[in-house]
């Protein structure tokens, strides 16, 4: 797959800008990650996808399903030898604080993106998603990024630094397109650390244990997607009827769903390798709004 287009937060307008704001609020993160920016390159699909998925994404059930996926990745990674990247580099205390912030930010976000990608992919191949609960029946969680969550800060996808360029090329070659995953672009702010981490992660990705764990995580994500509270009305035909290239949308979604379990397993190893990184970062409070408001918002 060639380099796919992404829509930056700065360039987003119209429906994409609106959905980006909603995504940050509902996913409770400080920025819009690469995976979502790739989808946004298909703006009509993107808006329809969000309309179909938002009622699920803002529920406690979605949050808990994402927690289970994160736990599964962490449990798998806990079986493997310690990575040793954290101690291999000489970062200062403030730098380590920032790296921990990145790991917690992506630890909170990536399981949700995996679940979202699995649900969308299932819908695009006409498989059922959700259990058709009555609108407004499921508990919702509070909106907005937690006050202490790190900013989503990245190095350019085409950096000037030769070491980073070569690392990014190797990462994409290994985890697959489309684009350099956000967590690696964030960790590239500390090139030595990224190099130490990637040089240890890469060989493990070829091992049977890793491959099996990634496959299992992918299956779990689809199972969780099927069990979400609300039915999802989204299909390739609908995408095509909106004037979008349904095949291209599917290719991007399929590629994302395939690589996200690997990314989550790598993130889990980095999390376990770094002291004091929360396994379950920033748990969500319940959203305390009257039912009639909730039902109205669910349209």
């Amino acid at each position: 797959m060639a380099r796919a287009k992404q829509v930056s937060e700065r360039d987003a307008d119209g429906d994409v800008e609106r959905v980006y704001h909603e995504l940050r609020q509902v996913l409770r993160v400080t920025g819009v990650d690469v995976s979502l920016r790739l989808w946004a390159a298909f703006p009509r699909f993107f808006a329809s996808m969000w309309e179909a998925m938002e009622p699920n994404v803002e529920t406690r059930a979605f949050e808990e399903a994402a927690d289970r996926l994160r736990d599964e990745a962490l449990d798998a990674a806990a079986e493997w030898e310690e990575l040793g990247a954290w101690d291999a580099v000489t970062l200062g205390p403030s730098q380590r604080f920032h790296v921990r912030g990145v790991l917690e930010l992506y630890g909170a976000l990536q399981p949700k993106v995996l679940l979202l990608a699995s649900a969308v992919r299932l819908a695009l191949v006409a498989e059922p998603v959700g259990r058709n609960a009555v609108p407004g029946a499921a508990e919702r969680v509070e909106r907005g990024a937690p006050a202490r969550m790190a900013a989503m800060e990245w190095v350019s996808e085409r950096p000037d630094d030769a070491l980073l360029r070569s690392l990014f090329a190797d990462i994409v070659k290994t985890v697959g397109q489309p684009g350099v995953p956000g967590e690696y672009r964030a960790l590239a702010l500390w090139p030595e650390y990224l190099e130490a981490a990637w040089s240890r992660l890469k060989p493990r990705m070829a091992e049977d244990d890793f491959v099996h764990a990634a496959e299992a995580l992918g299956r779990s994500a689809r199972r969780e997607a099927r069990a979400l509270p609300y039915g999802v009305t989204l299909s390739r035909e609908w995408v095509a009827s909106q004037g979008e290239a349904a095949a291209a949308v599917f290719r991007v979604t399929d590629a994302l769903e395939r690589r996200l379990p690997m990314l989550l397993l790598n993130l889990a190893q980095l999390t376990l390798d770094a002291p004091e990184v929360e396994r379950r970062p920033v748990p969500a409070a319940s959203r305390l709004v009257p039912d009639w408001v909730a039902a109205g918002e669910l349209r």
Partner: peptide, 18 residues
């Protein structure tokens, strides 16, 4: 210089300093 920075959390905010 950045590698020399320590960090202190002040409520929900944090400061880096040397």
């Amino acid at each position: 210089w950045q590698a020399r920075q320590a960090v202190v959390e002040l409520g929900d905010r944090f400061l880096s300093y040397v």
